[in-house]
């Protein structure tokens, strides 16, 4: 049952990801990207991380993609058609295939993910996934979290300064 659902969702995810690059209308590409994000959210639910699924939809589908569509709308690219271009296609294809292979190898070998870690299904069901994420972010990895937030703050201030006529 779960395997069927997985392969169905995976098919939709791969097809829509393919059409993101294939569609020649930016609106269609954006819609396909939203579909891909929703499929990823389904994967997170299957991996017993409902919190990540909700965040995936809220942040990527609900905020980032809305902004991208907003820009498409604001620049009125709605019905213009992307031109075909093939610059650096071979190199980028080769690079992405290489990255995919290395990532797959690392995941399979258990180097990138903590397959042998202490967060198992039993721990998730007893503590709750949200609590585990909160503990990891605000207790175990507090310093990287704060550094990331300062980075974002710098970016926001930079954006404000760039968009202001006179500071």
């Amino acid at each position: 049952m779960e395997a069927i659902l997985f392969y169905l969702t995976a098919t939709v995810a791969i097809l829509s990801a393919f059409f993101v690059t294939k569609c020649r209308n930016p609106v269609n590409s954006a819609l396909n990207l939203v579909t891909t994000f929703l499929c990823l959210a389904v994967f997170y639910v299957m991996l017993e991380s409902p919190f990540m699924a909700a965040i995936q939809i809220m942040v990527y589908a609900g905020a980032i993609m809305v902004l991208i569509v907003f820009v498409i709308m604001l620049l009125n690219l709605g019905l213009t058609v992307k031109t075909r271009y093939s610059h650096g296609l071979a190199t980028s294809g080769f690079l992405s295939a290489l990255v995919l292979l290395i990532t797959t190898y690392m995941v399979r070998a258990g180097e990138a993910t903590g397959i042998g870690g202490d967060v198992t299904s039993e721990v998730i069901s007893s503590y709750g996934h949200t609590e585990l994420i909160g503990k990891a972010m605000f207790v175990d990895f507090l310093l990287p979290f704060e550094i990331a937030s300062i980075l974002l703050l710098v970016a926001i201030v930079g954006a404000v300064i760039l968009s202001k006529r006179e500071v």
């Binding site: 919190f51 909700a54 965040i55 939809i57 809220m58 589908a61 609900g62 905020a63 809305v66």
Partner: peptide
């Protein structure tokens, strides 16, 4: 609640 926020975003 996050689910509701996500749906509101969609």
């Amino acid at each position: 609640v996050l689910f509701i926020m996500a749906m509101a975003g969609l």
